Amino acid sequence: MLTVIRQAQLFTPHPAGIKDVLIGGGKVLAIENNIDLSINDLSAPGLVTEVDGKGMLLVPGFVDSLVHISGGGGEAGFASRTPQMQLSDATTAGITTVVAALGTDAVSRTHTDLVAKAKGLKEEGLNVFCYTGSYHIPAKSLTGDVEKDIMFIDEIIGIGEVAIADHRGSQPSVQQLAHLASQSRVAGMLSGKRGTVSIHVGPGPEHLDLLHKVADETDIPLTQFYPTHMNRNQELVEAGIRFCQYGGTIDFTTSTTEYDLAHGEMAAAQALAFCIDKGVNPEQLTMSSDGHASLPIFDKNNQLVGLEVGQERSLLMSFIEAVQQHDVTIEHALMSVTSNPATILGLKKGRILANADADLVLLNDTDLHPEYVWSRGQLMVADRKPLVVGRFE
Rank of each mutant, 00 (worst) to 15 (best):
F298I: 13
L307E: 14
G310F: 03
V305F: 02
G310P: 03
Q303I: 11
L316A: 08
H292A: 07
A293G: 11
V309C: 11
N301T: 13
S294R: 05
N281H: 06
N302R: 15
H292C: 09
N281T: 02
G310Y: 04
S294H: 09
M287F: 04
L285H: 06
R313I: 12
L315G: 00
E308A: 14
Q303D: 12
P296W: 04
P282H: 09
L295Y: 08
L295W: 06
K300C: 06
E312R: 10
P296L: 04
S314M: 13
D290N: 01
N281E: 08
H292K: 14
L307V: 15
Q303M: 14
G306N: 03
E283N: 08
D290Y: 04
L316M: 11
E308P: 04
E308G: 09
G306A: 05
G306W: 07
D299V: 09
V280W: 09
H292V: 10
L307M: 12
H292Q: 13
R313M: 11
E308M: 13
G310D: 06
H292L: 15
R313H: 13
M317D: 07
D290Q: 00
Q303K: 15
P282V: 04
L285C: 03
M317E: 12
V280Y: 12
T286M: 03
L307F: 00
M287T: 04
L285N: 05
M287I: 14
D290M: 00
Q311L: 14
P282K: 06
V280C: 07
S289M: 01
A293E: 02
M287D: 01
L295T: 07
L315S: 02
A293R: 12
E312G: 08
H292R: 14
H292S: 11
Q284V: 12
L304N: 05
S294A: 15
R313Y: 09
Q303G: 06
V305P: 11
P296D: 07
L285D: 01
M287G: 01
G306M: 03
L295S: 13
D299F: 07
I297V: 10
D299N: 15
F298Y: 12
G291F: 10
P296H: 06
Q311R: 02
G310H: 05
T286S: 07
A293T: 01
M287R: 13
G291T: 10
S288V: 06
N302W: 15
L316S: 04
P282R: 05
S288T: 08
S294T: 05
Q303S: 13
L285I: 06
S314F: 04
V305A: 02
L307R: 10
G291R: 08
K300R: 13
N301W: 04
L315T: 01
L285P: 00
L315V: 02
M317I: 00
Q311C: 12
G310T: 08
E283C: 01
L304E: 01
D299G: 07
G310A: 04
G310K: 06
G306D: 03
I297E: 15
R313A: 12
L304V: 12
L285R: 10
L304H: 06
R313N: 06
V280N: 09
Q284S: 11
L315C: 01
E308C: 10
G291D: 05
G306S: 11
V309K: 11
M317V: 00
S314Y: 03
V305S: 07
M317K: 12
E283D: 12
L304P: 15
R313V: 10
I297Y: 10
P296A: 00
E283Q: 12
Q311P: 07
S288F: 01
E283S: 11
G306C: 10
Q311S: 11
